[in-house]
């Protein structure tokens, strides 16, 4: 399903909109992209290179490289990339 942002007593920055494979997704500005994608129901981010099995963010701290996506043409780790308005995200097809 998806990650879930706690609401009680938590104030978050205003949401910004960015594109994931052409679809608009909104998330609080500055939230790690891996979190924003999972909260939008996009858990699977790529397929493994050999077995072709679905993969998503695993370590959430910049080590495992499972959440690698393409942002504005550059390969990045989604868990270390803050969400910005207008960023163009592409899933899949990386690290093959």
């Amino acid at each position: 399903m998806s990650l879930w942002r706690a609401t009680e007593g938590v104030t978050r920055p205003a949401e910004v909109t960015f594109a994931v494979d052409g679809t608009d997704v909104s998330a609080p500005a500055g939230e790690p992209l891996a979190t924003a994608l999972a909260a939008a129901g996009m858990l699977g981010l790529r397929d493994s290179p050999r077995g072709g099995t679905p993969r998503g963010a695993f370590c959430h701290m910049g080590l495992c490289q499972e959440c690698v996506v393409t942002v504005d043409g550059r390969i990045v780790q989604a868990c270390l990339t803050p969400v910005r308005a207008g960023m163009q995200v592409r899933l899949g097809g990386t690290l093959r």
């Binding site: 879930w4 942002r5 706690a6 909260a39 858990l43 699977g44 099995t53 695993f58 959430h60 701290m61």
Partner: peptide, 25 residues
């Protein structure tokens, strides 16, 4: 263990403590 939605415990603490995000419902 490679399925999306399976995460590390340490990763879960990052989500909870730094982002106030729950790993799932």
């Amino acid at each position: 263990w490679t399925l999306p939605g399976v995460i590390g415990l340490a990763g879960a603490t990052v989500l909870l403590k730094a982002q106030a995000v729950l790993p799932g419902r």
